[in-house]
């Protein structure tokens, strides 16, 4: 058990295995995402209430879902960094934070553009959009702190503390924003909550979520490999990998 754990933490082992998986992740991700998007855009039936603008859902929900799960993944990795000081965990946090930021921005952007035809305005202080905005701030803070600390090891540990503090706060933030929202404007129209969505709508949605998940996996692998190469370039195995063209 501990041996597996140790192996999982070895950058060399990760490098080998991720190189093998990466093409599949990319191909599967692009394929699923494209299938979901094309199905959603051209073949899914029109929403009886919102018309065709609802088709934004097929990228809004995947990005919003991924933005949140990436932060949870980062928090788990940060905990591993703090408890076991596993090298790969803090490589993951550092590599993935900018991806999370971009996904959060995309979720916000698509949500806000979707708001224009549905609410008649580009921005509304809706509970969900506001929580997303705060998540964007959290990602920004993580990246800023990481950039500000020169020493690699203390940067990784400081960022881990921040991410864990952030994840403890996320439910509190979510709860308080929901409460604040009901206080100021009773919810009139919900974007994604429908009592029942026909299969022609949720199947493409599921496909694009899965596709984006796989693409995120590929991105994480590529960026982690870059980070590992930069950190371990003095080791013999990296030298071998590079000179033999195995990278």
């Amino acid at each position: 058990m501990w041996q597996i754990f140790h192996k999982l933490g070895s950058p060399k082992w990760f490098f080998g295995i991720s190189t093998r998986f990466m093409p599949w992740l990319l191909a599967g991700g692009v394929l699923l995402l494209m299938a979901g998007v094309v199905w959603g855009l051209a073949f899914a039936p029109k929403d009886y209430l919102q018309g065709n603008s609802y088709r934004i859902i097929f990228i809004h929900v995947p990005t919003a879902f991924m933005a949140q799960s990436v932060y949870i993944m980062m928090a788990s990795a940060a905990l591993v960094t703090l408890v076991w000081r596993m090298k790969l965990a803090d490589v993951f946090v550092k590599a993935v934070a900018p991806v999370g930021l971009v996904l959060t921005f995309l979720a916000l952007f698509t949500g806000s553009v979707w708001g224009k035809p549905t609410w008649g305005t580009w921005w509304i202080w809706d509970a969900r959009l506001t929580s997303m905005l705060i998540l964007l701030f959290l990602y920004g803070g993580v990246i800023a702190l990481d950039r500000a600390i020169n020493d690699e090891k203390s940067a990784a540990r400081a960022v881990a503390v921040l991410v864990v503090v952030g994840v403890v706060n996320i439910p509190i933030i979510k709860y308080s924003v929901d409460w604040w929202n009901t206080l100021h404007q009773p919810a009139t129209f919900k974007l994604t909550e429908k009592p029942s969505m026909p299969a022609e709508m949720w199947v493409p949605l599921l496909l694009s979520v899965l596709g984006l998940y796989l693409i995120f996996g590929w991105l994480a692998c590529v960026r982690m490999q870059t980070e590992i190469l930069s950190r371990e370039q003095r080791t013999r195995w990296v030298k071998e990998f590079v000179l033999k063209g195995r990278v």
């Binding site: 952007f109 224009k116 035809p117």
Partner: peptide
Amino acid sequence: YVWACYAVF
């Protein structure tokens, strides 16, 4: 709206 979202994405 739809196409702007997809393009930016």
